[in-house]
């Protein structure tokens, strides 16, 4: 027990870096805007107004308008709901699949471990995007299937990460102790292993969130997500792409939004990783 407590205090002693705080603040702002989208007086993101098409950023349209005269700021904020939701759902699916599989493989070892690791290795041999595209082709286009496909594609990596984290703590004295006082496997996993692998898993989940967002937008950029009318960062980027020379903002706005969000997520996950996974522990 003392062992565990010492570990906890050691973790809490590492402060967030400036980059970590900044990215957390930016992400909080993005999530807040997404949450408050219906109440902050944005123009209708679907309302087309041909006379206002391709207006540059300015007083009337903060971020300009797209080729149909729709307000880009409004589409960006409304689009963030869909984009963030797709990434969140995907990550939950990844976590829901990868966490139990990784715990099972890492703690149980033996033939189950062997089986899971083999299957995971095979799946990891496919390029992620290829697998996502294949799954979307199989399940049919739409933002739900995109989230599902991205989520499923993340499961093998998540399984590996969880498993290796479990492997690194399962031989520790406190696990040994729990086992020797007669704890059942379930209790050992939930009460002793899970809290001790949570750090790296959370850090990796954050990385995975950025990856999921990037891939979900990539797939909808390719036209496999929602109908292009629906505001979503990937489809906005695709629409703007045809106007790179005449109206660079139409693609720069969603493009920068994706970049900034993924960058912040990655910085935050770095910080989390430093905090929970000090270099000494590998």
């Amino acid at each position: 027990m003392t062992n565990v407590l010492r570990r906890e205090s050691h973790r809490l002693s590492r402060p967030f870096s400036t980059a970590g705080w900044c990215s957390a603040a930016v992400l909080a702002l993005i999530v807040l805007l997404a949450g408050l989208a219906p109440w902050i007086g944005l123009p209708d993101p679907l309302a087309m107004s041909p006379p206002d098409r391709l207006q540059p950023p300015g007083a009337q349209h903060l971020l300009g308008t797209d080729p149909f005269g729709r307000d880009l700021a409004s589409r960006l904020v409304w689009g963030s709901r869909r984009t963030l939701a797709a990434a969140a759902v995907a990550v939950l699916i990844t976590l829901g699949g990868g966490l139990p599989l990784g715990l099972l493989a890492g703690y149980h070892r033996g033939w189950i471990d062997e089986l899971i690791v083999r299957v995971v290795d095979v799946l990891l041999a496919f390029p992620g995007v290829l697998m996502i595209l294949g799954l979307v082709a199989l399940l049919g286009p739409g933002s739900r299937t995109v989230a599902l496909a991205v989520g499923i594609t993340g499961v093998p990596v998540m399984t590996r990460v969880v498993r290796s984290a479990v492997l690194s703590v399962r031989e520790e004295a406190f696990v040994e102790a729990a086992r020797s006082v007669g704890c059942r496997a379930g209790r050992v996993v939930v009460r002793h292993l899970l809290p001790n692998v949570a750090g790296p898993v959370i850090a990796f989940t954050a990385v995975q969130f950025g990856w999921a967002m990037l891939n979900a937008t990539a797939v909808s950029f390719l036209g496999l997500g929602e109908s292009p009318a629906v505001p979503e960062w990937g489809t906005m980027l695709n629409l703007g792409r045809g106007y790179l020379r005449s109206a660079p903002w139409a693609s720069a706005v969603p493009g920068l939004a994706i970049t900034v969000t993924v960058l912040c997520v990655n910085l935050l996950s770095d910080t989390l990783q430093d905090r929970w996974n000090p270099p000494g522990r590998g």
């Binding site: 679907l46 087309m48 080729p67 149909f68 286009p141 036209g223 109908s227 292009p228 009318a229 629409l239």
Partner: peptide
């Protein structure tokens, strides 16, 4: 592009549009 504008117009008069690229 055409599809987006046409869909919008149809929705405005009460159609439900399921579109697929």
């Amino acid at each position: 592009e055409v599809a987006q504008m046409v869909e919008n117009a149809w929705r405005a008069v009460g159609f439900q549009v399921e579109s697929q690229l």
